[in-house]
Design a protein around this nucleic acid. Structure first.
Lengths: 340, 340
DNA sequence: TCTTGGCACTCCCGTGAGCAGAGTGCCAGT
DNA sequence: ACTGGCACTCTGCTCACGGGAGTGCCAAGA
């Protein structure tokens, strides 16, 4: 059965009321709080249809109705009006991010800001290395057989790794390597780096090849292959709002999932340009997050995307508000990155 | 009234049983599970004294007894035998830490290991900058008016900051600064750096002083004054073990405290040599952690200390086991750092 | 055909009573 | 100084009960 406009309106009302009160909503309360222009009995009929179609359900016979994951999905896709951020919120964002001196600083401020504004758990991925280009590579001698390899990416990320050399190497050789490595890789995207690094070894004079191979393998292994993504997390205390009612009784699985970087990266790292992705309850592939929803989006200078950010909360969340906030924060962060 | 040996034994038994079962323990159960050689009635008399002295209490009349913070304190100080780690645990530690390639890696592995072994929340402080010496400073030109300042400490920590220069500066000048800065600071402890940095500016040729001042102020502000401590956290999901029973009903305050780096640093950062510090319940200065206990110690190569690590859990925790694990992990990490 | 008021029904939830069980405190006896 | 016995207290569980909220259905009306 197709849903007519009023039924959709009823669904919207149910979602909004349930999100606000966290209690099953009945037909009588609905007509009192919303101008539906019909009687409770009519609303009940509509509810029966909505339940049949799987958009709402009753916790028990003779309780009010609660939206299902499918109900939230329909709400998000077709029923929610986009909420504009209040000027106060905009100002909060600007003020919070303004003082950032550093990529680390930007990421930390962003994640705290997001957690605070949405009152949920926030996750921010550092600019992805695979989407970055090399700005500069530095080789710093630590001892005669050890180097520190420092890579500075155009996104502001700085990564360093220790390189164990096969034998003593004097500083002229190091300088020579530094020049060659930069000549070959500076400006290149990390995703394109592997063949270039290989070429670097091949072009090397035979007597220095051993040393170069060491540097090259560290470069490849740690900076490229093991896609070394980092992220920041904040607001876990927000999970305890709403008691143990959300998350079907236990925070445990959620907290466990939040400890797995791999899982979080999967959640917020897979982003397409200018889309805000909403995963509701069961739509999450991770079992532990079946009772949670995730709103995520990409960010980056201009229209390019260098990383993802988002928030995680109970399926019973204020989707329009959260989506608006996540988008706004992502845009501000992108602007900030563009300035550098 | 002084406590005789049997009363202490009773207290020990109460703590051990309560930690194991998480239920108030009565006199009858006590004599059954421990070889006290006396009757329940005698134990009851002892319990009455222990309660009078504030070491145990009754949740309600006619329930068993539960240790108070003071009871745990006495237990830790005088009654607990040091538990030796099982060979399996030792092997787990070694295997877990063996593959570390990197300071970051070491810290992350350590914190996860600690959380896993103790089944509690683990915190590991990165080697403190103020306890480190400068191994090398690198100045990397990013553009004509921007430098990346990279500091490598002897503890393996690497920190970088962006420096905005007052005007265009050519690469020879940068090299010159790099040489001077290293000559002055390499090998020096960061705690001793401020006057040296000042001297650096004073000794500088007037026409280059502006530039050097920029570098110096970044050095001072970010690396020294704002003591830029970092830390890693793991095992928050362990807070949910034991239901909401521990932490008097709400995880909220604990999760909030765990989000404040300052608080965590206070908890595990203040360490004296070769001491394991145990803070029980009310002994914590942080209000949010009144229901928690913290076991912390310092770590570092040899006998020096470069940072702290520890775990946080309910006051009802296995103190001897936790203390042993924290100590052992700290020692292994220290050894690992000594090797580099 | 859609809407509405009425009505019987179901189920939750809070309250209070009753009861078994665990544990204590005290006392008198050894 | 320890012990057995006994009365007492309090919790936690179950059960019964009633109020309240909400539903589903039906027949009547627009």
């Amino acid at each position: 059965m197709p849903l007519d406009d009023r039924k959709l309106e009823v669904l919207r009302a149910i979602v909004e009321d349930y999100v606000a009160t966290q209690e099953p909503v009945g037909s009588k309360a609905l007509v009192e709080r919303h101008q539906l222009g019909v009687s409770p009995a009519t609303v009940r009929n509509d509810m029966a249809v909505l339940e049949e179609e799987g958009y709402i359900r009753q916790p028990h016979t003779s309780a009010g109705r609660v939206p299902t994951d499918a109900g939230y999905r329909l709400f998000v896709d077709r029923l929610s009006r986009i909420k504009a951020l209040s000027p106060a919120e905009r100002r909060a964002i600007e003020r919070f991010l303004a003082g950032a001196v550093d990529l680390d600083d930007v990421v930390h401020r962003t994640v705290r800001l997001l957690a605070q504004l949405t009152r949920q758990v926030a996750v921010v991925q550092y600019p992805s290395l695979s989407r970055s280009s090399v700005r500069h590579l530095e080789l710093v001698p630590i001892s005669t057989t050890r180097l520190m390899l420092v890579m500075i990416a155009d996104t502001g990320r700085v990564e360093q790794r220790l390189v164990e050399l096969p034998g003593p190497t004097d500083s002229d050789d190091v300088l020579d390597m530094r020049r060659k490595v930069n000549a070959k890789l500076a400006g290149e995207r990390l995703a394109d780096a592997p063949p270039l690094v290989q070429a670097l070894v091949d072009e090397c004079a035979p007597e220095k090849r051993n040393t170069m191979t060491c540097v090259a393998s560290v470069l490849l292994e740690t900076l490229v292959e093991r896609s070394d993504e980092r992220l920041a997390l904040a607001g876990t205390a927000n999970l305890t709002r709403g008691g143990v009612l959300d998350f079907q009784g236990s925070l445990r699985p959620v907290l466990e999932a939040l400890e797995e970087e791999v899982i979080l990266l999967k959640l917020i790292g897979e982003v397409e340009p200018s889309t805000t992705r909403v995963r509701i309850g069961d739509e999450n592939e991770i079992d532990n997050l079946r009772a949670a929803s995730v709103v995520s989006t990409g960010y980056g200078p201009g229209t390019t995307i260098v990383g993802g950010l988002g928030v995680l909360g109970p399926t019973r969340m204020d989707y329009p508000g959260t989506i608006a906030t996540v988008r706004a924060v992502a845009r501000y962060v992108g602007d900030l990155l563009a300035q550098n």
